[in-house]
């Protein structure tokens, strides 16, 4: 299996916080982005690959291909950053057998169907359920924007959100 040193949910993908914060702090050598829509969007993929730091590489895979790639052995000394836009993708990867121990939540912007979840994370009901499932599958989600800042345990926030969703479901 590839040496994934950080799995991060950030819908901006490669961004200042990643390039200036996480990449040097975790000594990342490769970035793998998993997103079906992005893999089918050459404009976005080219933009991502054009501007990554010169001393590293970036690949964009579909979920299906990512599992094959990530489960295979990687080169020696590789330190890989796995970037996804939504927890749903991570859950799909873990479901497919990728043994992730923890995942970092960075920034997920609000959009149609999403509600504020924790600090600058906004999630839809499906995404909260995905985080809950990840937690149950042994992949602990936590919030940390940049390496210099505090790491927050979000299990209570997941529990609260799940509880609210259950109540709303009952009331409906």
């Amino acid at each position: 299996m590839r040496n994934i040193v950080l799995a991060r949910v950030d819908d901006r993908l490669i961004h200042g916080e990643v390039v200036m914060g996480w990449v040097p702090a975790m000594r990342i050598t490769r970035i793998i982005i998993v997103d079906d829509a992005l893999a089918a969007n050459p404009f976005a993929t080219r933009a991502l690959q054009a501007l990554i730091p010169p001393d590293m590489k970036c690949y964009v895979y579909t979920e299906q291909k990512a599992v094959d790639r990530l489960m295979a052995d990687g080169p020696k000394g590789e330190r890989l950053l796995l970037l996804v836009k939504t927890p749903l993708t991570l859950q799909a990867l873990v479901q497919a057998g990728l043994p992730l121990k923890e995942c970092n939540l960075g920034c997920v912007g609000i959009d149609t169907g999403r509600r504020p979840f924790f600090k600058n994370i906004s999630l839809s009901g499906e995404e909260v359920q995905a985080l809950d499932a990840l937690q149950k599958q042994g992949c602990t989600p936590y919030y940390q924007l940049v390496p210099d800042q505090k790491r927050y345990d979000i299990s209570a926030a997941i529990g609260d959100a799940m509880g609210r969703m259950e109540e709303q479901g009952k009331s409906i």
Binding site: R12, M20, F43, A47
Partner: peptide, 16 residues
């Protein structure tokens, strides 16, 4: 699509 695709990479480029 274009604004979403470019915002992160321009952010990374500018910050660096």
């Amino acid at each position: 699509m274009v604004r979403t695709s470019l915002m992160g990479v321009c952010g990374a480029m500018g910050d660096t």
